[in-house]
Structures are given as structure tokens and as C-alpha cells.
Nucleic acid binder design. Structure first.
Length: 187
DNA sequence: GTTCCGATGTACT
DNA sequence: GTACATCGGAACG
């Protein structure tokens, strides 16, 4: 995977990331749920233009944008389209495949299904925090490999937003057991 | 199984 | 002050 992959509209990149392998220091799994955000979107951190927090969103594609949410959790995004500055994809859930023991330890949870089912849980399991904000996802400690198996991807409105609630920019692998929520069913 | 609610930091009005 | 791209535990069925 390279810069060109991310230098496209976020709502195009987001479904393409479903099925990709995502690891931090060798720990992680297959991406099964993502959401797209861009600067024309009132739900996006970039909506009101550049700021200290959202600076990575206005930088080059393929960099991490990591921020704290609700004072307790981290969320991990990858910056997209440089022509539509201020766009990114939030990675919301993984199907754990590597480093299960370590993830379980970090999360304090036994069930594999719970390890990376949500943006905050995923960051905890992979030990992602603000130290990785702005880092390239093509270099250590990240591993990001394009999907090898193509499965059906569905979409729905995004979770946890109060604006842009109807924009169907949440993408997930159809039938996956590892989503942050039970499949709402759309197409 | 479900629903409800508080925690807790920070960006922004 | 208010809102927030969330989560886990308590209470309940």
C-alpha cells in the first residue's frame, strides 16, 4: 500500500480499507469497520478549518491522525485526499489475527471479539496513542497490507456523531463478528 | 441479554 | 460553560 492509495476521497478509501491487514509492532488484524470524514462534513474535526489538534488532517496523505476522545480514549485515523484537504478515515474495528495474547493483556479482556471492536478499544489493544500522531502508516511501527480476500462491504450512517447523522460513510465487512456494533443492515 | 450513566481531558464557543 | 468520531460497569430482565 502506498501514498496513492490514500490520496483519494475518504469515502472511496474507507471501503477499500476493509479487509486490509493493520498491525502496530506486529500486533493487530484485518480491518472490518471504518468511517470517512472530510472538510465539508459538519461531523468532521476538519469542518472548521485547520487547528492545532486537527493539523495532521491537513497534511500529506498516509499519515496518522490520533486524537483523544471523551477524555479517556484514543482514536486512530489515516489522512486521505490532498486535493480535498481535511479528509481522513477512522479505523473503528479489527478482526484480531496477530498478538492476541498481548492485546488481551492490554485490554484486560479475554474474548477475542471484544479486543478491537471500537476505535478506543482498538487503540488500547495496539498501544496507539498521541506519540504516533502524524506518523507515516507506511513505516515502522505500522504494517498496512492491502486486502487479499475480497468480501462484501456494506455501509450505514456513522456512529457517535450528532451532525451529519445521515451521511452513510460508515463501512463494514458484511457479516463480520468483530464490528463495534451489531450490523444495522443497509447496502 | 438489555439499558443507563458517569468518567475525564481538551477543543472550542 | 458545553460538547465530544467512547467505554465499562451497574442495574435490570
Amino acid at each position: 500500500m502506498d501514498t496513492a492509495f490514500f490520496d483519494r476521497p475518504a469515502e472511496t478509501v474507507a471501503p477499500d480499507l476493509i479487509g486490509a491487514l493493520f498491525l502496530v509492532n506486529g500486533v493487530g488484524g484485518r480491518i472490518v469497520e471504518t468511517e470517512a470524514y472530510d472538510a465539508e462534513d459538519p461531523a468532521s474535526h476538519s469542518f472548521r478549518g485547520p487547528s492545532v489538534r486537527n493539523a495532521p488532517m491537513f497534511g500529506p496523505p498516509g499519515r496518522a491522525y490520533v486524537y483523544r476522545v471523551y477524555g479517556r480514549h484514543w482514536c486512530f485515523n489515516v489522512v486521505c485526499d490532498v486535493r480535498r484537504r481535511g479528509s481522513a478515515v477512522l479505523v473503528r474495528a479489527l478482526e484480531p489475527t496477530a498478538g492476541l495474547g498481548l492485546m488481551s493483556e492490554r485490554r484486560g479482556v479475554g474474548e477475542v471479539r471484544q479486543l478491537c471492536a471500537g476505535p478506543g478499544r482498538l487503540c488500547r489493544a495496539l498501544a496507539i496513542d498521541d506519540r504516533l500522531n502524524g506518523a507515516s502508516v507506511f513505516a515502522s511501527p505500522f504494517t498496512l497490507l492491502d486486502k487479499t480476500i475480497v468480501r462484501r462491504v456494506s455501509h450505514s450512517p456513522r456512529i457517535g456523531v450528532s451532525k451529519g447523522v445521515e451521511t452513510p460513510w460508515r463501512f463494514f465487512e458484511d457479516g463480520s463478528r468483530y464490528l463495534s456494533r451489531r450490523e444495522p443492515a443497509t447496502a
